[in-house]
Design a protein around this nucleic acid. Structure first.
Lengths: 197, 197
DNA sequence: AATCAAAAATGACCACGGTCAATTACAAAA
DNA sequence: TTTTGTAATTGACCGTGGTCATTTTTGATT
């Protein structure tokens, strides 16, 4: 009886992720094809699907990792002083997601859950982001810089809603010279957080 | 030189839509397969794709029609007296979309655009919904029932954001006995529209 | 009626994600 | 060393959306 995955298996999984990341680097998320991944990793197609539920499951790990990295950056930047500065903190996230519709779709599909399976880095990232936002909002409330009549969790989830909204609009537009998502987010955030005076 | 589509063509298109609607009726949106549609319509696969850009294009017409019907209902119900009543007006829309993830995905993908191609009923529906909401919000502002410090258009788009947010969360949950989207929407709407006193 | 160019429809074909019964590699037991 | 049960891998196969060179239909023109 052996419950823990064997060494060989872990190596295969790591190789798949490595190769997938490399292909994404070269061709972008939309250019990732399962056949290419398994070919370059030197395994059969079935193997990939024994490691990841589906193509999205593989993408979720890659994207989840990146989201975690972005969150590290956010946290490192420290708590904002007001709503406008909060927009600045969120800009890297918007920039990342807005680069490819695949990222947006995947985050949207995975990021409402609260039940986290081992693989679900994306869900973990979502939870972490809401938690971080809630903490920051609480600080801002304490400092009297934003409205205090709503719990920080609600405000945080509302911000998530606005993030996705501006991204959704962004992807529907021919984004040649449109206002970037970060800019589009600002009025919503200000109106949402504005202290009831 | 003949620019207008010929009669035969229009008939084929109508038949395809008819059949597709019937199949959706029987199997739900997720059960709609292109092969079934063309088989029952008695045409070749290629024909379908000469009438609609892709499967989504076909779905968009079906769903767009339904959205239009819902908007008729909304308009007929008349302007709400306050934010809470607005939630009630939006409930049918939430109920409809929450019945199948396919609807949600499609609306999300199509409904940010402003450029409407002939077929894009969904886009037209989106524009109409924002316009209707804007009008209602303007009335509520005039009556002093909601905040007046933001333009009704911004408030309307914000509501769209919250609609999609609660739906997104809904589809990530195992919705056995969870709070339905309409219920989840309420706190957001109240907080968003609350007059700054 | 015969001709012909444009419109419409056709269906063999492809791409790509995903499945699963069969096979191989591995580690512990005999 | 051989046996054996299980973990891991394999790759032929499938479903389904989508393409496009070819064929059929249509209606205006002679």
């Amino acid at each position: 009886m052996t419950r823990a995955p064997q060494k060989r298996r872990l190596e295969t999984r790591a190789r798949l992720l490595e190769v997938a990341a490399a292909i994404v680097q070269e061709q972008g998320y939309s250019g990732l094809r399962v056949e290419d991944v398994v070919a370059r990793a030197g395994v059969a197609k079935g193997t990939l699907f024994s490691h990841f539920r589906d193509k999205d499951g593989l993408l979720a790990v890659l994207i989840g990792d990146e989201v975690m990295r972005l969150l590290d950056g956010m946290e490192a930047a420290g708590a904002p002083q007001d709503a406008a500065e909060l927009t600045v903190r969120l800009a890297p996230h918007l920039d990342y997601v807005s680069q490819d519709r695949v990222i947006f779709d995947l985050l949207l599909r995975y990021s409402g859950t609260t039940a986290a399976e081992p693989d679900e880095v994306v869900t973990a990232g979502f939870i972490r982001q809401v938690a971080l936002l809630s903490r920051w909002l609480q600080l801002l409330q304490a400092a009297g810089r934003i409205r205090r009549d709503q719990p920080p969790e609600l405000l945080a989830e509302g911000i998530q809603a606005f993030l996705n909204h501006v991204l959704g609009v962004w992807f529907c537009l021919e984004h040649d010279d449109e206002t970037p998502p970060a800019k589009a987010l600002e009025p919503y955030l200000l109106a949402w957080l504005q202290p009831a005076p």
